[in-house]
């Protein structure tokens, strides 16, 4: 009985000690600037664990694919039909926008503004995800050895994914758009309205604009505004119509263009924003 009591006390003392250590760590991390002590520890750990994660990934990925496939089996047929329709619609739109695209390219050349397509980039594969559903970040298998640096934007075939927040030699951590501490400047296609799209975890992004004059209609397309990201990257679509109320900012949810739960390959754009003028990394080769 006495022994059990002593053990209980020791485990309680250990608990209190570890809770205090955790609070100190959190305080140091929150107060530290530019990563600091915590950032250095994370980089070292990520560099050590990255090869193990890569190996584990090779084993787990087929199993994960199988489980996802089973979960989505019923919806595959209807999804296939919907995708065919979308493809037809996309081809039709592509044919319509081709003259506009070449006109846009010419105007950009005249204004000396390189387009997203002219940027050097690096294709990377998702190697690890956040450590929980609260952690909206991924780790990709390209790092400083491949020319990746902090703040480079990341996209996939559907649209903007996020931006690089830390880099090791062979891996990089990408903060997803859905992260509650992440916001991206956006503009509504077809209007002059601008605002920011803020992450809200698993929920849709939130569009907030204090300057928008027009109403934002459901389905409106939002793309990145020039600044931290290159202009024109697809962010998502307005889920609801929102009208400006006197004295209040327009707010409406945005359905992200990217499905963040199925990310596999992404493209890291070698884009270096310099405020206020946007400067681009030189395009050396297509990769």
């Amino acid at each position: 009985m006495l022994n059990a009591r002593r053990r209980f006390d020791r485990s309680t003392a250990l608990l209190i000690t570890f809770v205090v250590i955790s609070i100190i760590l959190m305080t140091v991390d929150v107060r530290g600037s530019n990563g600091g002590f915590a950032g250095s520890m994370r980089s070292v750990t990520q560099a050590v664990v990255a090869p193990i994660q890569g190996a584990a990934n090779a084993v787990v990925r087929p199993i994960a694919g199988f489980v996802d496939g089973l979960a989505n089996l019923a919806g595959l047929r209807s999804e296939n039909a919907a995708l065919r329709e979308e493809l037809d619609e996309a081809n039709r739109r592509l044919a319509e926008t081709e003259p506009l695209r070449s006109e846009n390219e010419e105007l950009r050349k005249l204004l000396n503004l390189p387009s997203v397509g002219a940027l050097q980039s690096q294709i990377a594969r998702v190697q690890a995800r956040g450590s929980s559903d609260f952690d909206h970040s991924i780790v990709v298998n390209k790092g400083s050895a491949d020319g990746v640096v902090v703040d480079y934007p990341v996209r996939n075939v559907d649209g903007l994914v996020g931006r690089v927040v830390s880099v090791t030699e062979n891996s990089a951590r990408v903060l997803l758009l859905t992260n509650p501490n992440h916001a991206v400047e956006v503009q509504v296609v077809g209007s002059e309205d601008r605002g920011s799209a803020k992450g809200r975890g698993a929920s849709d992004l939130q569009f907030i604009s204090a300057t928008a004059e027009q109403e934002i209609t459901e389905g409106a397309t939002l793309v990145t505004d020039a600044g931290r990201y290159p202009a024109g990257l697809l962010v998502g679509y307005a889920s609801e119509t929102a009208q400006r109320q006197a004295g209040f900012a327009i707010q409406t949810p945005i359905k992200p263009a990217v499905d963040f739960s199925t990310l596999d390959f992404v493209e890291i754009l070698f884009f270096v924003p310099v405020d206020p003028a946007v400067q681009l990394a030189p395009a050396e080769s297509d990769s």
Binding site: L15, F18, V19, I21, S22, I23, I24, L25, M26, V28, D29, V30, A38, M41, R42, T45, Q46, V49, A128, G130, S131, S132, F134, D135, H136, S137, V165, R173, L175, N179
Partner: peptide
């Protein structure tokens, strides 16, 4: 978990310890 994630250092340590 904290070191390999992007949440503040010590948060998961506190929670999983408790």
């Amino acid at each position: 978990n904290d070191l390999l994630g992007n949440t503040i250092l010590g948060l998961w340590a506190l929670v999983i310890t408790v």
